[in-house]
Simulated scan of single mutants.
Amino acid sequence: MLRRMKGTGKGVTLADVAREAGVSSMTVSRALNRPDIVTAPIRERVQAAVDALGYIPNRMAGTLAGGAPVRLLPMVLPTLHHSVYVPFLEGVQRGLTQPGWQLAIDLTEYDPQREWRAAQQFLSLRPDVMVLAGTDHDPRVLPALRRFGVRIIEVMDAHPDPADLLIGYDHAQAGTMAARHLIERGYRHLAYASCLGVGDARNARRMQAFRAEAERCGVPCAAENVEEPSSYEVGVTLLRRLLTREPGVDAIYFSNDDVAAGALFECLRQGLSVPGRVAILGHNDMSISAHVHPALSTVATPREEIGAEVARRLNAPTLKGGLVTFPCELRPRQTT
């Protein structure tokens, strides 16, 4: 019978847990580091002892002693200001099956200098692999990672010559798809509306492809950008600017769904019919998109699938490089 005493965890050792559970220290070590080779009743007794004593394993000491190592998975992402990267992170977290992985995240806000500082900080911890968003980096980042022998996983982009392993989707293809959808629906004066366009190369590629497809079809296409983080308020600003400067615009492709939703709310406030006066198309298919009224048409991006593929590659015995792309999907709803 386990003693029902809550410890502070301070100074509690593996031997203390073993005594509490009535098993050997080796059994405790196996239950914590290799639970697959320990029977369920023993695992439960060990876990109950861990909980009762407040024991926290010293993973670094465990690594030196031959236990299950802590495997740091550093991720340098642009932002968590909105929920775009949440499905990606969930895909990674749910997909990792090998023990010991610990995610660590730093944010750049699309600033290359901040990306370099984040890479430096993570390199001081000597990781085996690092996840980077996109394929456009501070010029010091990739050489430094290679110098330290760190494997590189780039995500959320596509490029014919990846630095190592690249898992993402084609932003130019998404922009072309969006333009074709609006033109096929009969709209004849398009616009691309974005935020952080200068610092976000993926957004820029999407915009260029959107405008190129409009030009190919003989349809005029305006563009408006706000150097602020994506938000509902930015959508309001972009809509007002576009309709003031280009009153003939009848369809707008926004760089993110929260921006598109903000524009939609502003149309409703002004009494502008959507899609009668202006059609609105978003990007990413965030959770709000299907639940606003009218429901937001959008380009769905494979964010969770990309995260799951990162995990699948890390679970494999050997991390192989190359390019893995997933398709985007046009989700036409009521706003186009």
Score class of each variant (00 low, 15 high):
Glu154Leu: 00
Arg30Thr: 05
Gly22Cys: 02
Leu80Pro: 05
Ala133Leu: 09
Glu266Trp: 08
Ala191Asp: 04
Arg117Glu: 14
Asp16Ser: 09
Met26Asp: 12
His171Phe: 11
Gly271Ser: 07
Ala61Gly: 15
Phe122Thr: 08
His171Arg: 12
Arg313Ser: 14
Arg241Ser: 11
Ala212Cys: 04
Pro327Cys: 01
Thr97Met: 14
Glu184Gln: 10
Ser255Phe: 06
Gln121Thr: 06
His82Asp: 09
Ile152Phe: 13
Leu319Tyr: 09
Glu115Ala: 00
Thr318Asp: 15
Ala193Met: 02
Pro69Lys: 08
Gln93Lys: 03
Gly95Tyr: 02
Thr27Cys: 09
Leu145Pro: 11
Leu182Gln: 01
Leu243Pro: 04
Val150Ile: 09
Leu166Lys: 12
Pro35His: 07
Arg4Cys: 06
Tyr232Met: 01
Thr301Cys: 15
Leu196Pro: 09
Glu44Phe: 03
Glu227Ile: 06
Leu319Val: 15
His171Ser: 12
Ala311Val: 07
Tyr85Asp: 03
Thr13Ile: 11
Ala261Leu: 14
Ala133Lys: 04
Ala172Gln: 14
Pro112Thr: 07
Arg303Pro: 01
Arg30Asn: 15
Val155Asp: 10
Arg4Ile: 08
Thr13Lys: 11
Gly175Arg: 00
Val155His: 10
Leu2Met: 10
Ile280Tyr: 09
Tyr187Gln: 00
